[in-house]
Design a protein around this nucleic acid. Sequence first.
DNA 1: GGCTATTAGTTGCTTTTGTAACTATCAACA
DNA 2: TGTTGATAGTTACAAAAGCAACTAATAGCC
Lengths: 151, 151
Amino acid sequence: MSQAPPFQLQDFLPYLLNQAAETSGQEFQSYYKARYGMLRTEWRVLFHLGRYGDMTATDICSRAKVHKTKVSRAVSALEARRFLKRETRSNDRRHEALSLTPAGEAAFADLTTEAQRYNATLLSDFSDEEFAVVRRFLLHVARLDCKDSQT
Amino acid sequence: MSQAPPFQLQDFLPYLLNQAAETSGQEFQSYYKARYGMLRTEWRVLFHLGRYGDMTATDICSRAKVHKTKVSRAVSALEARRFLKRETRSNDRRHEALSLTPAGEAAFADLTTEAQRYNATLLSDFSDEEFAVVRRFLLHVARLDCKDSQT
DNA sequence: GGCTATTAGTTGCTTTTGTAACTATCAACA
DNA sequence: TGTTGATAGTTACAAAAGCAACTAATAGCC
């Protein structure tokens, strides 16, 4: 009745992925939480605007696969801290073009530096080839492995 | 002023890990949610007891790195649905030995089969060697890569 | 123009999580 | 014994996330 190799928890990918995401997320959170009092979604919105240019809340939703209420609240919080500003588009007044303020740009630059540094520490024991495998796997599982990688 | 290669979101591991964990977690959740109305922590407690034998709530906390309030609530929920039973240990009445009921064992067996099947689909495009790299990486990031792998 | 359907974004309510304080039990040691 | 400190587990309260209803603006079509 026993299955061939008893199923180990450390072989179950949703569990492994969750543990790894939790640990790394917590560790990196310490940066943006301590320095800017940001929440995860706020950091994510900041990064999207800083890295990929001005866009609307809905754009961020579809790119980051985050629900719009979370984005809405993150945008409000970042606006209250003067990290971004909104501008209603004249041609369609439903859209709000979001853009970073100088303070937002500064925070983005600072945190991006940290992100790259932190990323490097996670990969220190792995070769470029190994990272490529890991990256491909993660993109596959997250269903992000479209041929046309987003600009 | 621009950093050598502009930092891509798809290279940032906490982000990638979170997306992959979210997607796979959601997908697998559909099984235990639909069939047994379980929450993630409840499934995790069930799996620990089914796979690793009877233990106390604190044992599960340290093994699964879950906070004790979450485990406490999951245990209560599983007990209410008659998936597990508690037994206060006579030698130390603070400890509660948790064990699955027959219904709990059945759910565990069913879900474990699904887990293995789902796991296989995630890995269908990857070789054993590639999986080994991914697994090693995830254990490393999650700080679970102790030499003495848990029994 | 005016009716209907769609889209962007917000708000209120519920569920879940996180934090800290609490009870109960036991161990150690004066 | 009895006092202090630690441990197992629960509960109460606060923060965050999820869901559904809502407003405002626009597009399509008659």
